[in-house]
Each structure stands twice: as structure tokens, then as C-alpha cells.
Design a protein around this nucleic acid. Structure first.
Lengths: 303, 303
DNA sequence: ATCAAAGCATGAATAATTTTCAGCCACGCT
DNA sequence: AGCGTGGCTGAAAATTATTCATGCTTTGAT
């Protein structure tokens, strides 16, 4: 009855990765013949071909593609479950897999992780940034255990804790004309080159909360991956960027950068830690949240 | 290296369900001895006890609890994957698992499913209503393939299609004092018994969009599971309810019910079909959405 | 207190399965 | 045509899973 085993998923994944049964066999420390037998048996039992044999290559059939997707989804979960059990065995606490959906939060995260590693020496911490189905999907799919995000989603088995508030400001370089302005109006950005992280526009607060309501577009838009380079570009007059105020205050002096309020009332932001309800009683996860919250209470900003 | 197999998860699940190795063995058509050996080997390999042996009973350890959670999460996915493959084999198209997060939509759904079953005879349709992690979690976790919901969530690997708009109205019985009112104010509900589906208050539109903004609470609040009983209660003067206008128009005559607008401008609602981006090119899924959309275009309401 | 029943563990024997070995065939390149 | 690569197959070998027979401990009834 139940015929689809872990090994089958593994084989499918490895064949896809390496392109041939022979190569997959090598990776799995088996002979090509063993795989051939196993695969044939599986295909017989399921009644479906997983690959079309064309000459000496294998091409996944529709069923094969589907199985590959299943394998890619389930195998990591099995691996993680095993790893977690081994950690249980060694009295270790486990691994905290943190997902980031918020580029500039990285600096903040470092400030929390450092003391956390000290107080929980037996917990591993892993930080990930790319998710096929977005941060929420990763949380639901047990790819990560905690999500740092500006977009909380209540109900549905997830919890979100606000962990810090900050103001999103415009960053300008040393000689910039807006340098000493009390605040900027959207119109004043129309002639600027705007540097942002390379994500969709509707995830950039400066667009959604500032430029789009006013119907303004910057003259130019440059996506940059890393914060350091972004700051460098701004410092050298290549454009302006929108970043948290605390970050400008921290790096500003070194680069000669200045923060300018976005609009008369500024753009307020909040960052949340999200996690599964089911994990609420994991002490080491709870401890991380507490640490984050404590950090929030001691200082106004995370810098 | 990889030691955690499907059979292990199955055993853990069955032992939990039936309370003993012996009973689990019977279910799995194995001897108690076989399970005992298998389990011992697994525990040895993992280095963790899965159960504490107390007298003649087994109690799951912390590791056991965790494994059980893994099993309950992953086994259904494996089962479904297998089933899907068998369907591939027989030239069937698959199963469309629809999740409902919207009680009154059930009637609407029936109207779409009926013609769908005709045009896709080889597709099975399954409708589910309870989800441990909410509808979104079920969608992300591959428990369902499509979600009928009033709360869409854009980005993150999911798509939402609006499929119909309707007006949420107050339903009152034959002799009710509000029966012929043009609309009701929140204050007028303060002396009523309000009948709703048994979900959290912040998921009930009449609260979030009507009563709560005005700070009003009904005199009484009765949760009822089924729409039929709800309508019956209203018809017999046991209270009032909030339902889609089209539903009142359909069942109203039979029970002598009347719709009354909620507030001067009414409460507008929209229902969405959600699905995974990854499934966009599944023809039979696409067809369902098209059918739903076509239905929307032909008539103003879904009745 | 004793006894029968229920439940798990164990070792040896057996059954089933997986893997390898050795040989073959087909393809594509030169 | 010849060679290297990759996959298939059947039979043999190796490994693993399962059973059988049995023992031990707890539980609950008498």
C-alpha cells in the first residue's frame, strides 16, 4: 500500500541534481544497478513513469516533476527532524532558524544574537534570507522557526511580537541640498536618484507610504544589494536612500551622512518577530523573543 | 546517515493512536515483536528514547512528542503525493481540495462545484472546513489546494482572485420591529440577540465593521454551527443574524425573513479564491477559477 | 498472596528485500 | 568501426525485516 519511501524521494532529487542515474548512484554510495532496480520497482508499483528514457538521458515526466517538487519540499523537513533529534540526544537544545524579510534589520539582529549565543551556548542559530514562498510560507512550512518582518499576520496559528519601532528617514550625503532640511516633501525627491534594496516596489516603505500617495517618481531608481555599498553610494553623492534613522545615526558620522524626515510627520515603522503558536513553549525560542523585547525596553532605538 | 523512514513515522503515529505497540502492530499487520525490534533499532540509531517504558505502557518522551508532531505533519503529505501519482497513472486529473474559511460561502460553492464536476469528470473534489493553522497554513502546508476566504494575503507565493462581491445584511424574522427599516444603526442592535457562526469575534464582519466601531454590544450572543438552524432561529424570533443579502433573498421567502441594510451605507464584502503560485498552470485548478469568475460575470450576486 | 492476562524485550531462525556482480544493449562521438 | 558512457537485467550475495518461541514485569482480579 504505502510505497513511496524516503529513499525514493532522495533518488529523484539526486537524479535531478546530477542528471543521471550513474551520477546519483555515486553520490548515494550505491551502484547504478541498485538505483535502476529500485526505480523500476517504484515505477511499477506506482504505475507511472517518472522519467522518459530518451537515448541515454532521463527526462522527468509530469509525474516526475511533481515528485521532485514533493521531494524538495519534504526531504529538508525530514533532515531537520533528524538533526533535531540528534541534538536532543546530545542534550543540545536545538537550532533556531531565523528568517529575515527586512534588509536593514540585519544590524539589529546581530545585536540580539550576540548575547543570545552567550546565554544559550547549546543552541545553534541560523539566519536565512531567501524563501521560495516568502517568509510566511517558510514559517508555515517549517523551513524557519522565527521571522523578522515588518508585515505581521495575525491569527492562523502564528504569533507576532513587536520588537522595535523606528523612523524611516531619507539619507543624504555630505554636500546634499536637503542636508539641513527639517523634512522633505515627495516633490523634492522627483529630481533625485533613489537607491533601494532590490525588492518589489510595493515592499518599499518610501514608495508605499511617501512617494506613491503623492504620485511622485524619482528621476532614477538604482537597486543595490548590500547596505554598506548603499551607504557608500549615498556618501559619494550618487543618490539618496531610505533607511532607519538609527542606522543613519550609527553609520552617519563615519560617512558624513545625514537623516532627513520624510514628510512633516515622518514615516513610522515597526518590526515584528513571528513564530508558530505550536512553538510557544520552546524555552530557547521564547528566550530569544524576551531578549529582543528587553532590548527594546532599554533603549529607544535599536542602535 | 539517513535513518528516519516513513515506517517509523507511521509506527509512532499508530502507537499514539492505539496506545500500545501490540495494538499498533495489529493495525500494521505486523507482530509486536517486529515493532519492538524496529523501534529499538531506531532509538539506538537516533540515540534518543522515543518512549518511556512505565510498567506495561509506553509514554512518549519529549523527543517522542516532537516526532509525533512531525509524523502528523508529513505523513498526510506523503499519502496525498502517492494518491496523486496513482491518479496520474489512471489518467485521472487529480483531486481539488478546497478549503472554506467563510461559512455562508458554502451555498455559493455548491453552485460552482456542480457544473465543475460535470465538465471535469476525472477530477475529484473535496471540501474541508477545519484547519489547525488556519486556511493560509493549510494552503502553505499542502493540506488544501484552494481556499475560499474573505481575507486575501498578497505576495508570498500565493494568488488571490476575487470571485464575488456581496452585501452583508441583518436578517430579521417575520414580525420583527426592524423588518421594514431602510437601514439599522448599531445602537438598534443593543437590545437584540445576535446569532453568529462560532468563530472569533474579530472574524465576524458585523462586529468589526459595524458594532465595534460604535462600541456597541448586543444584549446576547448565540453561536450556531449551521446556516439552516440559524435561519430557523431567526424566523422564529429567537434573534437576528448577519448574512449575505443573496442568501436572505434565496431563503427569505421560505422562512419569512427580511434583509436590512447595516448602517446607512451597508457593509460590502468580497470573497476570494486563493491558491499557490506554483499551481497556476494546473489546468483543472485554473478551470475552477475561471468557472467561478464566469459565474460572477453573469449575475450580480451568486444567488 | 496468587494467578492469569497483557504488554514489551530478546535471540535465533527464517523470510524478504536490497544490493552487487557480470554481462548486454543502445546511443553518440570521432 | 571502435570506444566510452549510461542504462537494463537476471542471478547471486548480502543485508534487513519479520517471525517464532520464550522470558520478564506489571496489572488487576480472586
Amino acid at each position: 500500500m504505502a510505497t513511496l519511501e524516503r529513499i525514493h524521494l532522495t533518488i529523484i532529487q539526486e537524479v535531478d541534481r546530477h542528471g543521471s542515474l550513474t551520477a546519483a548512484a555515486k553520490r548515494l554510495n550505491l551502484t547504478q544497478s541498485a538505483l535502476s532496480h529500485t526505480v523500476r520497482k517504484l515505477e511499477d508499483q506506482l504505475g507511472v513513469a517518472i522519467w522518459r528514457r530518451e537515448g541515454r538521458n532521463l527526462h522527468p515526466t509530469q509525474a516526475g516533476e511533481w515528485l521532485l517538487a514533493v521531494a524538495n519540499r519534504l526531504l529538508p523537513q525530514l533532515d531537520h527532524a533528524e538533526e533535531r533529534l540528534r541534538q536532543f540526544a546530545q542534550g543540545e537544545r536545538g537550532k533556531l532558524r531565523i528568517g529575515m524579510e527586512c534588509h536593514p534589520c540585519y544590524q539589529w539582529l546581530m545585536k540580539i544574537v550576540a548575547p543570545y549565543l552567550d546565554s544559550w551556548p547549546k543552541v545553534e542559530v541560523d539566519v536565512r534570507q531567501k524563501f521560495q514562498f516568502g517568509g510566511l510560507g517558510a514559517l508555515f512550512g517549517y523551513e524557519i522557526d522565527m521571522l523578522v518582518t515588518p508585515d505581521p499576520l495575525y491569527r492562523n496559528g502564528l504569533c507576532f511580537e513587536p520588537v522595535f519601532d523606528y523612523e524611516q528617514v531619507l539619507v543624504v550625503g555630505p554636500g546634499h541640498r536637503l542636508r539641513d532640511a527639517e523634512f522633505v516633501e515627495p516633490e523634492q525627491i522627483a529630481e533625485e536618484t533613489l537607491i533601494t534594496y532590490p525588492v518589489e516596489i510595493d515592499r518599499l516603505d518610501i514608495y508605499t507610504q511617501f512617494l506613491m500617495p503623492a504620485g511622485i517618481h524619482p528621476k532614477n531608481h538604482k537597486p543595490i544589494e548590500t547596505t554598506d555599498i548603499m551607504l557608500l553610494m549615498v556618501a559619494h553623492g550618487r543618490g539618496v536612500a531610505a533607511l532607519p534613522r538609527w542606522m543613519v545615526e550609527e553609520y552617519g558620522p563615519k560617512f558624513g551622512l545625514s537623516p532627513v524626515r520624510l514628510g512633516r510627520h515622518g514615516v513610522a515603522k515597526q518590526i515584528f518577530l513571528g513564530f508558530r503558536n505550536a512553538d510557544t513553549d520552546l524555552d530557547y525560542l521564547r528566550a530569544f523573543i524576551d531578549l529582543a523585547r528587553a532590548h527594546r525596553d532599554t533603549r529607544p532605538g535599536p542602535a
